[in-house]
Each structure stands twice: as C-alpha cells, then as structure tokens.
C-alpha cells in the first residue's frame, strides 16, 4: 500500500505543504564517482560549493569542503572548476 493519503485526506488542489521536502529524495544513489578533496591543495575558496547544481557541498568546521553523499550525483563540476585542482573523482565500489 502507498504511504500517500487517500482521496478524502487530500487537501483541495493537492498542494505540497512541506517546503524543501525534496531533501527526502536521496539522489546520491545515482552516483558512479564521488569527489575527494585533497586538503593540502585546498585553499578553502568555496568555488566547488558555488557551482554545485545540487547545493550539496558544504564547509566543515575546519574550513574545508565536502559533498553530502546523500545527494551528490557525481557530476564532477566541482573537480572541473576547482582553481587549485584539489578535487579528484573516485569510482564508487559496487
């Protein structure tokens, strides 16, 4: 059985009442490669975050950046755009 409401429980017009709820959808499973940051080369500029179409790269307490692998689709834009070339893409294991 579906977890979605029956017709009587649907609000008229069926709006989505929870903003930003796409976060429930973990797109990380689409990924075949993951970005790895080399902290020795990283200058903590944030260009990787800025160009991430998933908005899934965030700064850690130490100031470095990392991708939230729940969402990262492995597109590689962060690696491509990193001005110090500190990001490499690593093949996901089966």
């Amino acid at each position: 059985m579906s977890s979605l409401p029956g017709w009587k429980a649907l609000p008229p017009g069926c709006p989505v009442q929870t903003p930003l709820s796409a976060a429930n959808n973990h797109t990380g499973s689409w990924r075949s490669e993951r970005p790895i940051w080399n902290h020795e080369q990283c200058v903590q500029c944030g260009v990787c975050d800025m160009f991430c179409p998933e908005a899934c790269i965030k700064q850690t307490a130490e100031g470095f950046y990392e991708a939230n692998l729940d969402y990262c689709k492995g597109c590689g834009i962060c690696k491509q755009e990193c001005p110090t070339q500190c990001i490499s893409m690593k093949q996901e294991e089966e």
Binding site: L20, S21, A22, A23, N24, N25, H26, T27, W30, C45, G46, V47, D49, M50, P53, E54, A55, C56, N68, D70, Y71, K73, G74, C75, G76, I77
Partner: peptide
Amino acid sequence: AKMLPKRELFSPGHRACQGCA
C-alpha cells in the same frame, strides 16, 4: 565564492540530471 548568500531555497534531492546548469 564565499560571498554567495548561504541560504538555500532550492533544495538538494531535486531530480535534475547530473551537472544540470
């Protein structure tokens, strides 16, 4: 890059293709 406003009003988990501009 760090001057980019932090607040995200477009959530991760959207179903766009990889690398969607």
